[in-house]
């Protein structure tokens, strides 16, 4: 029931793995060569500077150590001013100016380089400390929760789908389906004239005919503008989240709803997770699913009136809540 990748790329899988492996070897060997100093320091600095010159602005995905490498490359100020010129006599003139000012330029360049090197050293210390903190945080921070369909009800004839579709009729805006799979509910909502989109880390959005995105659902919820949606449906998303993650995701979902918007949650029950056929992901998940009373308590804590219904097989449940708008909370 756990779908690893909803749209597999069988021909590319082997090559993807090969590229991952080769790139890991490339990184390792490149790091070794940098430490061993195969290139002259000045040449390496020049090459690093060339690479950094048009690197993207955003730092996302770049490690501080990588950015610092470019800082290091730029921290040396060359006091030897180039003298090439296209004009006749230009080189000679520039050379004589350089000779006349060499001591002063060298003095200033030396101090600027020293300052830059000192700043760079300080940043390297910060980087070292941040890495240490990061390693410690990794031990305590919950990882991302998997999207799971343990009850086998993530399909259009699932027991909870009809009441959700009915409750979404006439909601005041777009509907988000978190844990959308291949977009089956987005498509069903579209057929009812409801404007919907989906988010799921497992999808391949390049092959989908509906608006689905390959994204972590919790991250997507955190990025939403206030009161920008008419409905949020979360299926199999919150089950394995740690309590704080779940609370934060729900707060974000409620904040994203317009007044009168619907929050619908389909989640597995603890019984579904305890079955022997449940996949290994449940053992590795940061949190455990809630019982009916747990959902009721959580909704009270979030100050939202909710109705909780248990599925016929006792393997999952449905929580329906109406947003009261930003001003009401």
């Amino acid at each position: 029931m756990v779908e690893e990748r909803l749209v597999a790329e069988p021909e590319g899988d082997h090559a993807q793995e090969l590229v991952r492996r080769v790139m890991a070897e490339v990184h390792q060997e490149a790091a070794r060569r940098r430490v061993e100093g195969g290139l002259q320091a000045s040449e390496l600095a020049e090459l690093d500077e060339l690479f950094a010159r048009h690197a993207p602005v955003g730092a996302k995905g770049q490690r501080l150590a990588d950015v610092l490498r470019h800082v290091d490359a730029r921290s040396f100020v060359d006091p030897v001013v180039p003298v090439a010129s296209k004009k006749a006599g230009g080189s000679a003139l520039k050379r004589s100016i350089r000779s006349a000012t060499q001591w002063y330029v060298g003095f200033v360049a030396h101090q600027v380089s020293q300052f830059a090197a000192a700043v760079s050293r300080a940043l390297h210390v910060v980087d070292g400390e941040l890495q240490a903190i990061h390693r410690e945080l990794e031990l305590v921070a919950p990882g991302p929760a998997p999207v799971l369909d343990l009850a086998g009800t993530h399909r259009v004839d699932g027991w909870w789908v009809a009441p959700v579709l009915a409750a979404l009729d006439g909601v005041p805006g777009r509907v988000l389906h978190g844990g959308c799979g291949d977009g089956w509910l987005v498509e069903a909502l579209g057929q009812r004239g409801c404007d919907a989109y989906g988010v799921d880390p497992r999808v391949d959005e390049r092959t989908s005919r509906v608006d689905v995105r390959a994204e972590d659902v919790a991250e997507h919820l955190r990025g939403l503008a206030p009161a920008s949606l008419g409905g949020v449906v979360l299926s199999g998303v919150l089950d394995g989240m740690a309590p704080a993650q779940r609370h934060q995701a729900l707060e974000a979902a409620l904040a994203a709803l317009e007044e009168g918007g619907l929050l619908a949650i389909q989640a597995a029950t603890p019984a579904a997770w305890d079955r022997p056929e449940a996949p290994g992901e449940v053992d590795l998940a940061p949190g455990r699913p809630l019982r009916t009373v747990g959902w009721e308590a959580l909704c009270r804590r979030l100050e939202v009136a909710a109705e909780v219904r248990e599925g016929p097989a006792g393997m999952d449940l449905l929580v329906l809540a109406r947003a009261r708008g930003q001003g009401a909370r």
């Binding site: 590319g12 993807q16 590229v19 490339v26 060569r33 390496l44 690479f51 993207p56």
Partner: peptide, 28 residues
């Protein structure tokens, strides 16, 4: 390797390598 789209193509396709420094260019 700092260009998100081309690197994404390589990762999804398994059709190429990327570099973020001279050494990675050389080794790759």
């Amino acid at each position: 390797g700092t260009c998100g789209p081309t690197r994404e193509h390589c990762e999804h396709a398994g059709g190429g390598l990327w570099f973020t420094s001279y050494e990675e260019f050389e080794v790759g």
